[in-house]
């Protein structure tokens, strides 16, 4: 049961990150004017930021798909999801309330409004955060349990 859950997590997290990463890189190489605008939080141009973050997401997605270590995958997903959460919190802190362009031009291709895409990405972020931390805590408690058992022997 736990193995099925772990496999499902790896596949779903990898798929979400792969879709988000590919769409970000694709958008980052586009020629929309918005890509030249500096990001209000980091000062980087949106285009550069999309390419950098998209690449990181792709790497984590590959780890999720091909790594044998569930701990590494969960750890990377938790780190990435927490960073994105902090990025969004930072946006709110600065009073910037525009929809996040997490899916870039993909929304245009699949006829999805930026607001709807933003909501979808919020749900995906919540899923990644909860599931990755759940697995990490589960692994930690298992390890403590197994260590206690081995010490008892």
């Amino acid at each position: 049961m736990a193995r099925i859950f772990k496999n499902t997590f790896c596949f779903s997290a990898g798929a979400i990150l792969a879709i988000a990463g590919i769409s970000k890189i694709w958008s980052g190489f586009g020629n929309a004017r918005v890509l030249l605008i500096p990001n209000p939080l980091l000062g980087l141009e949106f285009g550069h930021l999309l390419i950098v973050v998209g690449s990181i997401e792709l790497v984590v997605a590959l780890v999720c798909f091909f790594s044998r270590s569930i701990k590494l995958a969960a750890c990377l997903v938790a780190w990435l999801a927490t960073s994105v959460l902090f990025y969004r919190l930072g946006y709110n802190w600065m009073g910037y309330h525009k929809p996040c362009s997490c899916l870039g031009n993909l929304t245009d291709a699949i006829h999805l409004s930026p607001q709807a895409a933003d909501n979808i990405m919020k749900v995906a972020l919540a899923y990644l955060l909860i599931s990755s931390y759940f697995i990490l805590f589960g692994l930690a408690s298992n390890k403590v349990g197994s260590l206690n058992v081995s010490n008892g022997k």
């Binding site: 939080l41 980091l42 000062g43 750890c75 938790a78 780190w79 927490t82 960073s83 959460l85 902090f86 990025y87 919190l89 930072g90 802190w93 600065m94």
Partner: peptide
């Protein structure tokens, strides 16, 4: 808004991990 504070805030998850 202090950019250094913003960067520290954003880097916090990475440092913590």
């Amino acid at each position: 808004p202090n950019r250094l504070k913003v960067l520290i805030f954003l880097a916090f998850p990475t440092i913590a991990f």
